[in-house]
Design a protein around this nucleic acid. Structure first.
Length: 583
RNA sequence: GGUCCCGUGGUGCAGUCUGGCCCAGCACGCGGCCCUGUCAAGGCCGAGAUCGCCGGUUCGAAUCCGGUCGGGACCGCCA
């Protein structure tokens, strides 16, 4: 029997009493009583107590036990014994037994670790990342690794059971300047030309539908060279799904089933189905975001109607410029301090707003008529003791500001109902969006299918065109995005044209897709949930790096491997590259 | 590109606002000794930090100012 098949520390139970066992593991803790030494021996499955009694073991074994320090790797031979009742440790699954060591061998010693592997103390992230292999040894991280594995396993089983085929798609692919910035890979055989790492297998999965795969899924790595956030990594993992001859209801059904399975098997929670749906328009109006957190109420109201004749300058100005006034009632908010309000104003300014107003008690009270004040109260549902926060701006900015204010107010006033899971679909979404320069761009991606009934006004009022596009959202996180796709060459070209792409650009970048569309394309569509974020939810962390074994810092460095790093001159020469150094 | 928070022995924190009581405190860890029923073992003793780095202000700087580096949060960005 090798150590690989030996008894696992965490598996020991009362029923093992009397057995001779061999254990392999790391020293979690050592309690030396002088003549009697207790070792908590840890492996992936748990911790068992090894007892070494000077009186009943070899001198060599006792000497070895005395020399043990934290994180030494040892092999122990001994006999499992039931502990006397008074010595049972009910806090440990293995607490009913202990292993009396007859033989103990140090397989590997350890320096004092840079931070404690045992205990719940969270070291600074810089240190954790540099010594990631030790960080991952901690129980919390082991649990995350295991949860992630189980998510993958359940996911494979689920989609396989629905006859989906996993197909691997290339890592070296073609750059598409639309969307996120690509990671580029220089080509050795074609100097001056580049591959791109995939932002997602979007086009490949559509081509697989043309191939007749009909039901495709892949646990796919995606790479985007954009700045990072707490919930955004440069390389991340999507469950990529695509199917043929389907409508959005098929997608909703399958996804709700899959998420339901994950929550049931991993958390033992039975999620209610079907999930509620919210149109993009309503999400932005009522919650100020496309990923609302429904664990608290705080609904935003449009005040354009009640303030349509107002003489208050800030509101008048915004409304006359075609903007909006939006308000949010804070229950019991009249007790908010000036300092808190100032912090909210700072938050609003940070989002580009000129300011944030409040009623009553703010400087605007005297500019509103009693009827207008009454109207604001009614529209926002504000009662006695409540405070109304207001933003007046261009619609998109006012929405953004109120959305940020809403979540900040909920957080600082403790309105978030922890422990709730509020899944919902954002559907339908808009086909187009407006970028910062006021130009038309796509809402989801350029392959999204417009709703047939809205095509009539696609040229006149493009922003009002709804799409067969959907996100699913939970507790303020966007967990997935998807759509039904265009499967008609003419329609696809038309959308590209509306987006302002020239015929040459269309041909160069998407010619392969358009050509494929000439050979019998099934109507198709799909979705791509972010697996990292789903694991974040399941493990209760708000940091995406926690659910990635070897993550990079916010500034995209790998502190363990020390990447990125310079390469040798010879490598550059082979690629025909020269480095332009700034300065 | 921008805004904000953080950086103090190996680790986690206090001290910074209001400069001198701090050649820096606490807990854990670490080293030595004692200890035969602990499980966050206990007791005694001990070592370990020029307070991220550079510069400035001051009689005097962990503390104030400027810069810089690193980590984090956010805005922009993320089809």
């Amino acid at each position: 029997m090798s150590g690989f098949t030996a008894t696992r520390c965490g598996d020991l139970r009362a029923s093992d009493a009397g057995h001779e066992v061999e254990l392999y593991g790391w020293v979690a803790r050592r309690r030396d009583h002088g003549g009697l030494i207790f070792i908590d021996l840890r492996d992936r499955w748990g911790v068992a107590q090894v007892t070494i009694n000077e009186a009943n073991t070899s001198t060599a074994a006792y000497a070895a036990a005395s020399s043990l320090r934290s994180e030494y790797v040892v092999r122990v031979k001994g006999r499992v014994e039931k502990r006397p009742v008074e010595n049972v440790n009910p806090k440990m699954p293995t607490g009913e037994v202990e292993v009396f060591a007859t033989d103990l061998e140090v397989l590997s010693t350890s320096k004092t670790p840079p931070f404690p592997v045992e205990g719940d103390q969270e070291p600074e992230e810089r240190v954790r990342l540099k010594y990631r292999y030790l960080d991952l040894r901690r129980a919390r991280m082991q649990n995350i690794l295991e949860t992630r594995h189980r998510v993958n396993k359940i996911t494979h089983a689920y989609w396989d059971a629905h006859d989906f085929l996993e197909v691997e798609t290339p890592i070296l692919t073609k750059s598409t300047p639309e969307g996120a910035r690509d990671f580029l890979v220089p080509s050795r055989l074609y100097p001056g030309q580049f591959y791109a790492l995939p932002q997602s297998p979007q086009q490949m999965k559509q081509l697989l539908m043309v191939s007749g795969v009909q039901r495709y899924y892949q646990i796919a790595r995606c790479l985007r060279d954009e700045d990072l956030r707490a919930d955004r990594a440069a390389e991340f993992t999507q469950l990529d799904v695509e199917m043929s001859f389907n409508d959005e209801e098929d997608v909703f059904e399958l996804i709700e089933g899959w998420i339901g399975r994950l929550w049931d098997e991993i958390l033992g929670i039975d999620l209610p189905r079907p999930w509620p749906r919210l149109t993009m328009k309503d999400a932005l109006l009522r919650y100020g975001t496309d990923k609302p957190d429904l664990r608290y109420e705080l609904e935003i109201a449009d005040l354009g109607e009640v303030l349509k004749d107002t003489q208050a300058q800030v509101f008048r100005g915004a409304l006359d410029a075609g903007g909006v006034v939006r308000g949010l009632a804070v229950p019991g908010g009249s007790d908010m301090t000036r300092r808190e309000l100032d912090e909210l104003v700072t938050l609003a300014r940070g989002a580009g707003a000129r300011g944030l107003a409040w009623l009553p008690g703010g400087p605007l009270d005297k500019f509103l008529t009693p009827a207008e004040l009454e109207g604001v109260k009614r529209a926002t549902g504000a009662g006695e003791g409540d405070l109304v926060l207001l933003a007046a701006d261009r619609r998109r900015r006012a929405e953004k500001v109120m959305g940020l204010v809403r979540s900040d107010v909920a957080r600082r006033r403790g309105l978030v109902r922890e422990g709730e899971w509020r899944f919902l679909w954002i559907y339908p979404m808009f086909l187009f969006d407006e970028d910062d320069e006021g130009n038309l761009t796509y809402g989801h991606h350029p392959f999204t299918r417009p709703m047939e009934e809205d095509l009539a006004f696609i040229d006149e009022r493009p922003y009002d065109v709804r799409a067969h596009a959907y996100d699913f959202v939970c507790n303020g996180y966007e967990l997935a995005s998807g759509s039904l796709r265009i499967y008609d060459r003419a329609m696809q070209e038309r959308v590209f044209q509306i987006l302002g792409l020239s015929q040459e650009t269309i041909e160069a970048r998407f010619g392969h897709l358009l050509e494929a569309f000439e050979y019998g394309v099934p109507p198709h569509g799909g979705i791509a949930p972010g697996l990292d974020r789903i694991v974040m939810m399941l493990t209760g962390t708000d940091n995406i790096r926690d659910v990635i074994a070897f993550p990079k810092t916010q500034s995209m460095q790998d502190l363990l491997m020390d990447a990125p790093s310079e390469v040798e001159r010879k490598q550059l020469d082979e690629l025909g590259l020269e480095i332009k150094r700034p300065g």
